[in-house]
């Protein structure tokens, strides 16, 4: 348990280390989700267009 608390504490630098990792993780995940969502939305739009043309 102590080891885990030490890990979270980061030798007193928890704020800096964890916010750096947190912001980076959020940005990367956000970029991935945004890109995948755009792709899916466009795929759907394209399928609708294709079907409407028969």
């Amino acid at each position: 348990m102590d080891a885990f608390r030490d890990f979270l504490d980061m030798g007193g630098y928890a704020v800096w280390v964890w916010s750096a990792y947190g912001i980076s993780a959020l940005s990367l995940i956000g970029m991935l989700v945004w890109s995948v969502r755009t792709l899916k939305a466009r795929q759907k739009e394209f399928d609708v267009l294709k079907n409407s043309r028969g």
Binding site: L32, S35, V36, T38, L39, R42, Q43, E45, F46, L49
Partner: peptide, 13 residues
């Protein structure tokens, strides 16, 4: 690669 796919689709649309 995901984004290029989606750009290609945008052009097709």
């Amino acid at each position: 690669i995901i984004r290029v796919r989606s750009e290609l689709l945008a052009a097709k649309i």
